[in-house]
């Protein structure tokens, strides 16, 4: 079995087995939030891990994915699925429109541009009080399919788990396609890739739009699951969180970013006992992991494992 299939099967097995270890609705809620964050990271990883482009603004797409469908349902009484489609279309269009000029930039300039874009979207959501309810957020209606209302942790656990497995499968297909190999070549050297006749700009745009769509979908699902959304979901700190999840778990490792999402979602729950020391500990953990495992948790541990096996 190819290693990518092994990873996918492992993920599916974890999703299937996990409910037996979850004692109550709170555990389910955390598992769902991990899954939704992981979905964002799987998409973002295409951009950061494979195409080698930094984005510090992906929460904007997450936020738009949450707000646009919620508003269409709330204000215009649209059908949930239609509103979701429209929301994703809006996210995709925005990503496509800004991708070309932004992706011409490199390194820190790109980081700043995506950061700026993200902050602007967050500020607009925050300021348009009459539309979005402003900083105090807005209630989101439950997702409806006909007369069926999707509610409760059990339902959303399976929706999230299924979507995540599907999302990982799609991402891996993309990575292993000829286009994906070109994508990886980008990370190595854009000039080299271009000289081989690869449409570098085109691929970067594609990776950007796809990663935005993953974020948008996860945003919509989060809002429908929690039935509430605030502008914080679109904010700068969320963007940083997503990038941290990707880098912490392991860039260019699809399972790695899922682990990264799990760690960073669990940390606030685990650190709450530290009270006033919480931020101190969180900062130290982030720094320590990145200093000692700069390639991310999963790739670093995998390398250790290989070395250990080779020795014994």
């Amino acid at each position: 079995m190819a290693s990518r299939h092994r990873g996918l099967v492992l993920l599916a097995a974890v999703v299937l087995a996990l409910p037996w270890f979850l004692a109550n609705k709170f555990h389910f809620q955390v598992a769902i939030l991990i899954g939704l964050n992981a979905l964002v990271c799987v998409g973002l990883n295409l951009l950061i891990g494979y195409a080698g482009q930094i984005s510090l603004g992906h929460a904007a797409f997450f936020g738009l994915g949450a707000y646009v469908p919620a508003l269409l349902v709330d204000k215009l009484r649209w059908d949930s699925s239609l509103a979701l489609a429209a929301g994703l279309a809006a996210v995709g269009l925005l990503a496509f429109a800004v991708a070309r000029p932004i992706l011409r930039l490199k390194g820190h300039y790109l980081a700043m541009a995506t950061l700026g874009l993200g902050i602007i979207v967050a500020i607009v959501i925050n300021r348009e009080l009459d539309l979005t309810g402003g900083p105090d957020g807005m209630s989101v209606r439950a997702y409806r399919i006909g007369d069926l209302r999707l509610r409760g942790e059990w339902t959303w656990y399976w929706i999230t788990g299924g979507t995540l497995v599907l999302g990982v499968w799609l991402a891996q297909n993309l990575i292993d396609s000829p286009a994906g190999r070109a994508l990886r070549a980008l990370h190595g050297s854009e000039v080299a890739a271009e000289s081989l006749g690869i449409d570098v700009a085109g691929f970067k745009v594609k990776a950007f739009v796809i990663s935005a769509l993953y974020a948008g979908l996860a945003g919509a699902m989060t809002a429908h699951f929690l039935q509430f959304v605030t502008p914080i979901e679109a904010g700068f700190l969320r963007s940083i969180e997503f990038v941290t999840m990707v880098v912490l778990g392991g860039m260019a490792s699809t399972l790695g970013v899922v682990v990264g999402a799990a760690i960073l979602t669990l940390l606030p729950q685990l650190l709450t006992g530290f009270h006033d020391y919480e931020h101190l500990v969180l900062g130290a953990i982030l720094m320590g992991m990145m200093i000692f495992l700069p390639k991310g948790l999963v790739p670093s541990l995998a390398a250790l494992w290989t070395r250990w096996r080779a020795q014994s």
Binding site: N24, V30, G137, T230, I232, H275
Partner: peptide, 22 residues
């Protein structure tokens, strides 16, 4: 039992769930 939500509604919802269920 006090949890710090940092003013974030999503954290608040998760902590409230934890207080209720756990």
């Amino acid at each position: 039992i006090v949890h710090d939500s940092a003013g974030d509604a999503k954290q608040a919802a998760t902590f409230a769930k934890r207080l209720i269920e756990d």
